[in-house]
Nucleic acid binder design. Structure first.
Lengths: 210, 210
DNA sequence: GTCTATAACGTGATAGAC
DNA sequence: GTCTATCACGTTATAGAC
């Protein structure tokens, strides 16, 4: 989005078709449950081409994983580091942007988190984008609010965690939500749309709780 | 727990050893990434014994999955349906009990949720324990509070979802928490202990937010 | 670049001795 | 009941024709 020169083309190359297919299947089933044949079929190409372009299942996976995590984190850091917006505005933006984002690709959170659980090969540590979050404007603004007595929770990380939890958890638990709540896809989407407005209100209330 | 005649024995049978090992490995790696050989090794027994006792990997998995989900849901429904405790008390109990529960077995939430994502074979629907949650005392009390104007959020499900999110999400995202926050295991446990007290306070504040 | 055919390997499951 | 040895199969990856 920020690095490409051309807009998303209609006619994709074979390589791109495979990558797109890999993305779909990996995100849906996870690494271990995915067979390269699934990807080839999804891409409408022959199995051999997958290895021709990407050498191995694992290499292809690493590319998808990296891009996915990067996309996720980058959106985050951009918002967190915007010096023009207030802390309250950042909360709104994160809730709103991420709910839209994940509504478009609902499998991303559970995919990322379940693949990270063993942190195989230390894939996480190799992502340079991650650490700066602690030093972001968001966290500085939080400390500032604490100093001014506008926030009762002094740990910025608990605060950040709560925001993420309220935003992302419903998607991760959507199978349960749909079953327990008797909610269908349309209703689920509507619930999440409501939450775009509710989360900032809730967070604001939590900030002053004691 | 409710069906056994004897307390947990020190000397376990082979069958139990296998089941315990299966539990450990499945919870850690998930169904697809687990090899029956991993389980056999973890149990300190021969691979053939696994099939002797449980016929197949899938059957063994279904047993583990069922027990895990049942344990999780049962604890929940017991608290939710206690007619003696107030809504506030239930919130305390859920936060406190589940944080202790998951601190003991941190892999349970991500395991359950990632295995449910495709809901293969409709495993979820076959669990009778799940539906009654909507009709629990917890939800009735919530409706009562709404009627009395003590709660601003009229949707009990959003309310319940928030409670679960604040309680469980940190565990699911613990790899990220540890990396981004530079938190080690001891500090993580301490953070979660703090949350046992904080979550009820936060929820209380959210209840009155508008 | 793309395909078919097949090699190489890993994994679930079983046969059969003890 | 427990083991070793092995089968049967599915999956990743490659060789080689086009």
């Amino acid at each position: 989005m920020t690095k490409g020169k051309k807009a998303k083309p209609i006619d994709t190359t074979t390589e791109e078709k495979i990558k797109e297919a890999a993305r779909v299947v990996f995100l849906k089933k996870g690494y271990a449950a995915t067979r390269t044949r699934d990807i080839a079929e999804e891409a409408g190409i022959n199995l051999a081409l997958l290895n021709y372009y990407f050498r191995s299942k694992e290499k292809l996976f690493n590319i998808i994983m990296l891009e996915t995590v990067n996309g996720f984190i980058q959106t985050m850091t951009t918002i967190l580091n915007d010096e023009k917006s207030t802390l309250e505005k950042k909360v709104e933006l994160i809730a709103s942007n991420y709910i839209d984002f994940v509504l478009r690709e609902p499998n991303i959170p559970i995919f990322m988190l379940s693949e990270m659980r063993n942190n195989a090969d230390g894939l996480l540590e190799r992502m340079p984008v991650i650490q700066p979050i602690l030093k972001s404007t968001f966290f500085i603004q939080h400390q500032d609010y604490v100093a001014k007595g506008k926030i009762t929770e002094p740990n910025p990380f608990q605060f950040f965690l709560n925001l993420l939890a309220l935003t992302i958890f419903p998607f991760i638990s959507s199978p349960l939500v749909k079953l327990i709540g008797g909610v269908n896809d349309t209703q689920f989407t509507k619930m999440m749309q409501e939450r775009k407005k509710l989360i900032p209100v809730w967070i604001k209330a939590m900030m002053k709780a004691k």
